[in-house]
Amino acid sequence: MSGVSRRALPGFGLGLGYTMFYLSALVLIPLAACMLKAASLGPAEFVAATWNERARAAYALTFGVSLAAAVVNVGLGLVVAWTLVRYEFPLKRLVDALVDIPLALPTAVAGLVYASLYVENGWLGQFLVPLGIEAAYTRLGIVLVLVFTGFPFVVRTVQPVLADLDAEVEEAAAVLGASRWQTFRRVLLPTLIPPALTGFALAFARGLGEYGSVIFISSNMPFKTEIAPLLIVSRLEESAYAEAAAIAVVLLAFSFGLLVLINLLERWSQRHAG
C-alpha cells in the first residue's frame, strides 16, 4: 500500500504528535473527565441518578422513537435507493441531491419547521389533526422529525451496493425460471440486508443523540415526551453536575456499543459485497 518509510517523507513525528495532542485535548480527556465526574458518585448514588423512574421513562422514549424512526427509514430508504439506482425519471439528479438535505440542514431548522407543519393550522396538520393524528408536541412528532434527520443513512448505504450488483446474478435467476419477485426476495434482498442494517444502525444512533430538532417538536414533559439528552440538560440546570455526568455515561456506553456494532456490520457487509 501507500505507507512509506518514516525517513523517506518528513513530518511523521510532528503530524502524529499534533494529532495525538488535539485528539486528547479535545475529545479523550474531556470524555474521561465526564466519566471521572460520574465516578465521584457512589454506586448507590449512580444507580439512583441513572435508574430512577423519570430516567427510565426518558431512556424508553429515546430508545423507542429512535427505533421506530430507524425502522421507517429502512423502508423508505430501500424504496428511494432502488428507484435512484434502477430507473430513469425526470429530475432524478435533483431528487438524488435532495436526499442529503437532512445532513446539511441545521437540526434547529428541522425542528422549527416540522413543529409548525403539524400543528392544527399547519400545512399538514390541517388535514391530519381532524383525522385524530396529532404530531406536534407528541411522540409521533418526535418520530417524524427523527425520520427526517436519519433519512439519508439507509439510502446512502444501500445505493452503492445496489449499483455494484452483478447483472448476471439476476439474469441467471430469470433464466432458471424465477419470477421478478422471487429474484428480488431470494437473490437481491439477501445482498441488500447488510447495507440496510448498517444504515439502520447509523440512523438509530443518530436518533439516540438527537437534541436540537426534538426539543422544538416535543412538549418536553417529564415521563411523557422528555428524551434522555434533555434529562442531562435538566440536571445541569439544577447544578447537579455529577448526576448529569452519570446519565451521560449511560448514553455514551450505549452509543459506543452501537458504534462497535456498526463497525462489525460494515465488515460483514463488505465481505458480502466482496
Binding site: 474531556p30 443523540g209 445541569l236 455526568a245 451521560a248 455514551l252
Partner: peptide, 11 residues
C-alpha cells in the same frame, strides 16, 4: 457517536 448534549456537558 457522542450526543451533542454530552459533547457540551464534558466542557
Amino acid at each position: 457517536s457522542v450526543s451533542p448534549v454530552v459533547a457540551g456537558l464534558v466542557f
